[in-house]
Simulated scan of single mutants.
Amino acid sequence: MRRLRTAVTLGTALLALAACGTGGGGAGRECTLIGSMPGLSVVVPAPEGARVASAHLRVCWGGTCQEPRLELRPTSKTVSTGCDGDEPDDACGASASPDGGMSGFAHVEGLPKTSVKVTLTLRDAQGRKYLGKRVDVTPKTTFPNGPHCGEGEPQAVLTVANGQITPR
């Protein structure tokens, strides 16, 4: 009997804890347990994306530096494949089509919400340096569930176009 009471008490506590984790952070909205990773996204749109085979990042702040893994992958655009008809319940389709760009995300543990120095190096298929520049970037807080659910981790985006890096 004692084990049954312990199990019931533990089960009730776990249910209460689970309910607390999914409760709305404000205004009656539900907040999921989705989070965000601290890091930097790199986007190299076409036509420059076609030249890039690899990328390397160095991120420095507060006297320390990290060189996170950054793997670029081809980007795509959505292309309609048409609809079965014109009625609201008719099915429509779409497919992804490569657009000549490349993008990737580098997880940077401990990334602050203050200015960091980022060196981005891009290389072509022969291993030749295509771009090597340093920029100052200030990562911004993310809100993966919306602002009503609290802050996520800081992130920033680096876009490469015409040989320049634009932080956002």
Rank of each mutant, 00 (worst) to 15 (best):
110 G>A: 10
102 M>H: 02
125 A>N: 08
102 M>E: 12
102 M>G: 01
134 R>F: 00
129 K>Q: 15
125 A>R: 15
109 E>Y: 04
123 R>W: 03
88 P>A: 09
118 V>I: 05
114 T>D: 08
113 K>H: 03
102 M>W: 01
112 P>R: 06
104 G>F: 03
120 L>W: 03
104 G>M: 06
102 M>R: 15
122 L>P: 03
138 T>H: 01
100 G>I: 14
129 K>Y: 00
121 T>F: 00
107 H>S: 09
100 G>W: 14
137 V>I: 06
115 S>Y: 00
116 V>S: 06
122 L>V: 02
96 A>I: 01
82 G>H: 08
125 A>L: 11
132 G>T: 10
108 V>R: 05
124 D>P: 08
127 G>A: 11
115 S>I: 00
108 V>W: 01
122 L>D: 03
133 K>V: 00
131 L>D: 01
119 T>V: 05
124 D>W: 05
135 V>F: 04
96 A>G: 15
120 L>A: 06
88 P>F: 12
125 A>C: 02
107 H>P: 00
112 P>I: 02
137 V>L: 06
137 V>T: 09
132 G>A: 13
102 M>Y: 02
125 A>H: 12
120 L>C: 06
106 A>M: 03
100 G>H: 14
96 A>F: 10
99 D>W: 06
137 V>R: 07
109 E>H: 07
110 G>N: 05
84 D>C: 02
83 C>K: 10
127 G>N: 12
132 G>S: 15
83 C>R: 09
132 G>R: 14
101 G>I: 09
97 S>E: 15
109 E>R: 12
106 A>D: 07
117 K>A: 13
119 T>W: 05
135 V>E: 08
105 F>G: 07
136 D>T: 12
119 T>L: 04
82 G>S: 09
102 M>I: 02
120 L>R: 04
134 R>K: 15
126 Q>C: 02
131 L>P: 03
113 K>F: 00
91 A>G: 02
96 A>S: 15
138 T>G: 02
83 C>T: 09
101 G>Y: 05
106 A>P: 04
98 P>K: 11
125 A>V: 13
117 K>D: 11
83 C>N: 07
104 G>N: 10
128 R>L: 08
135 V>A: 08
113 K>Y: 00
123 R>A: 14
125 A>Y: 05
109 E>V: 09
134 R>L: 04
112 P>D: 03
98 P>V: 11
106 A>K: 03
88 P>I: 12
138 T>I: 05
105 F>E: 07
118 V>E: 05
99 D>L: 12
86 D>A: 14
